[in-house]
């Protein structure tokens, strides 16, 4: 991939807990392209948030620990660094918005000041300038009566409005990368669409890259150019959005698709949940992490971890089904009705 803004290699993160050490992220690689949106999907606890928070230096350490890996912006590894060429990474190089806007803003500080704070710290604005700019940013984020709203406190805002304010705050210093960690999960559906539209519009206008973390495939389809599917702390499949949706290479991705409602009136399929729960990351399995839940599991899957198999130029999946020694027809498995597969 040409000219990525951010290139993450072999990132691994552990957490020490009372129960032992959790290997939350187990060797993750990906690139973020300039001006594009990269989606990371996966269920709760698969390591999506930990991945980006480690890059941002937001994982509490201890108990967290980055055991290996790098995240290159240009030729500088930003893991464990605070600044690039004197510029702070957080806030001015990478902006971030979070899942729950209701709790992600300081309840005792007005919205305008919280946005202005960023500008004062990173851009050296006077507090007056910064507040004026904060109002402009709120306006850009489509908050009506921005001047009046800027003086209000978070509890006076609705969830959607708060997320707009969060976005205004994250883009205040025009960072080249915006990380959106489940930005619409806590919002209702109509508001979700508005927030996603706002993000896309801002991306068109200032050309930033977005890392979008979500478990909502609908959001992925709408926003992303490239998709990473994470499971049990690893990337099991990645590729362009269309290939992920129409030529899924990993049974987990297929399972996610089968569990997602469609609006195709002809499709008479029931939603199929993925049985079981993710493996215990205190003791990650020797073989494939998805083995215990996979409808296509084979003997080898329990014994050896699968390698990434390139399915097309930008599409790869970590699954033994694609190994040349396998005689089953993967394409057939993929095309068959997923719902009818599971005998149990």
């Amino acid at each position: 991939m040409a000219d990525p803004v951010l290139s993450v290699k072999n990132l691994a993160v552990e957490f020490d807990t009372y129960g032992g050490t959790v290997q939350a992220v187990r060797g993750v690689d990906f690139d973020v392209e300039r001006g594009k949106t990269l989606a990371i999907v996966g269920e709760s606890g698969c390591g999506k948030s930990v991945t980006v928070q480690s890059i941002m230096g937001l994982t509490p350490m201890p108990p967290g620990r980055i055991t290996s890996g790098s995240a290159m912006m240009g030729d500088i590894d930003i893991i464990g660094r605070k600044t690039i060429n004197g510029e702070d990474i957080r806030g001015s190089q990478i902006g971030m918005i979070f899942q729950d806007p209701m709790t992600s803003l300081n309840p005792t500080m007005n919205i305008g000041s919280q946005i202005a704070e960023t500008l004062i710290v990173h851009r050296g604005y006077s507090s007056k300038q910064a507040f004026a700019r904060a109002i402009e940013l709120l306006d850009m984020s489509k908050i009506p009566e921005a001047a009046k709203r800027a003086k209000q406190y978070p509890f006076e805002f609705s969830g959607g409005m708060l997320q707009r304010a969060m976005i205004a705050m994250a883009i205040a210093c025009e960072p080249p990368i915006l990380i959106a960690d489940e930005p619409t999960t806590a919002l209702d559906v109509t508001i979700q669409a508005q927030i996603l539209d706002l993000l896309m519009e801002l991306q068109r206008n200032n050309g930033m890259s977005i890392i979008l973390i979500t478990h909502d495939l609908g959001v992925v389809a709408r926003m992303a150019e490239h998709v990473l599917v994470m499971y049990a702390g690893q990337i099991v499949e990645h590729g362009p959005v269309d290939e992920i949706f129409y030529r899924s290479g990993h049974p987990y991705t297929m399972g996610l698709r089968a569990a997602m409602p469609t609006n195709d009136p002809n499709a008479e399929q029931r939603l199929t949940p993925i049985d079981g729960s993710p493996p215990d990351l205190f003791h990650p399995p020797v073989g494939c992490g998805y083995f215990a839940r996979c409808p296509h599991a084979m003997r080898i899957c329990a014994e050896q971890p699968p390698q990434a198999h390139q399915l097309s130029a930008a599409h790869a999946a970590k699954c033994w089904l694609h190994h040349e020694a396998n005689t089953q027809q993967v394409a057939q498995i993929n095309l068959r009705d997923h719902a009818g597969e599971e005998p149990s």
């Binding site: 941002m56 937001l58 957080r90 709790t103 992600s104 803003l105 960023t118 705050m169």
Partner: peptide
């Protein structure tokens, strides 16, 4: 809390996070 994480993500220096965000709340 989430909002202190936000403050960190904004790149505020620790002293400012302590006084303006943590202590007051």
């Amino acid at each position: 809390s989430d909002f202190v994480r936000t403050a960190k993500a904004k790149g505020l220096p620790p002293t400012r996070i302590f006084t303006a965000h943590q202590l007051r709340n």
